[in-house]
């Protein structure tokens, strides 16, 4: 029964219209699937209303590469990456697992609606 449900989800996933999330939403999935968590989604639009790029991409050291920072929970609770703010002081703290871990299981690491993702014809090789 459970297996059947999982199969149905898979099928629907394969036939669903292309995802249409907000421009700049980033799914990070280096470890989450394996660990049985939904992958986290980082919304750029939400954070850039509150913070300039420099805070995250210089001061906190996030490299300009989706999935390229090797983030994990141990680093986050030590105050690195998301944990520099999601510490109960600047923003709500990390026990709110599902607010970050909100993607459909199996969603690969991606920058949502990036040029490459939205091109009708693939560019280059």
């Amino acid at each position: 029964m459970l297996l059947a449900a999982a199969l149905t989800t898979l099928t629907l996933g394969a036939y669903a219209p292309p995802a249409n999330a907000e421009y700049g939403d980033i799914v990070i999935n280096n470890y989450s699937d394996e660990a049985g968590m939904r992958p986290p989604i980082f919304p750029h639009w939400f954070h850039r209303i509150r913070f300039r790029c420099k805070i995250c991409h210089s001061d906190l050291g996030f490299k300009f590469k989706a999935g390229g920072n090797d983030i994990n929970m141990a680093k986050i609770i030590n105050g690195e990456f998301c944990g520099a703010c999601h510490n109960g002081e600047i923003a709500w703290s990390i026990e709110n697992c599902e607010v970050c871990h909100s993607a459909k299981p199996g969603t690969p690491t991606q920058v949502h609606r990036s040029t490459l993702q939205t091109l009708i014809m693939p560019l280059g090789k």
């Binding site: 219209p17 999330a21 939400f46 993607a103 459909k104």
Partner: peptide
């Protein structure tokens, strides 16, 4: 309904609508 958030997760209930 954006295609990447899991409507079955608890997260979608509290996230802000863009």
């Amino acid at each position: 309904e954006d295609g990447i958030h899991d409507p079955k997760g608890a997260g979608v209930k509290v996230l802000q609508e863009p």
